[in-house]
Amino acid sequence: MTIFEGRGLTVRYGAHVALDGVDIALEPGVVHGVIGPNGAGKSTFIDALSGRKRPSSGTVTFEGVDITRRSVRWRRRKGLSRSFQRTSVFGAMTVGDQLEMVARRNNEEDLGEIVRTLGLEGILDRVCAEIAYGTQRSVDLAIALIGRPKVVLLDEPCAGLVHDESVRMLQHVRDVCKERDVAALLVEHDVEGVFRTCDVITVLDLGKLLATGTPDDVRADENVIRAYLGSAA
């Protein structure tokens, strides 16, 4: 049962086509990974899906309704949320203040649960800019999870994390997705992590869709092996 869908998404910058007619469909409780080498269009893809960048053509639908031209604010209020590759928190505010601020807007009833899940109890009254980078990434994720969104788009949540932190982060993502029945899109650089975490994987290359399927299918896909995993795996 698809809740969120992108069809034929294309983004052009002048003559350059950064994203070329990509389709994707997300289902509740399923972690959907997106991988691809540098310049594959991963960031453009998540921007187009989340409304940060309006696609040149193609549509985004949510619960069957076309939302391509809706504002990011509208989307968030309806249950579509995203995180950012470059940590996007409220630096000068305390962790507690900013989580409460976002919770107030999105009618979150159990902020405590998110705080516990992500292990942020001890730092609620710390100023966000002063805490460790890895913890800031968790705050970023917490902001995206507040208000029980139905769809969460995560842009490289593990960027800049050391291996252990990265493993823990992906575990959190998977747990939250399963517990809350969230449709999650996980754009990641860490291929190994994606294969470990995701139920479905989409591979992009040079702005085009290369393959979509279960981790095993994708691993066996010839196009993927040739274009992307060839040297690495």
Binding site: S50, R52, R73, R76, S88, V89, N106, I143, I146
Partner: peptide
């Protein structure tokens, strides 16, 4: 963080 505010509804 104006952008994150919009993305927070």
């Amino acid at each position: 963080n104006e952008e994150r505010m919009r993305f927070s509804g």
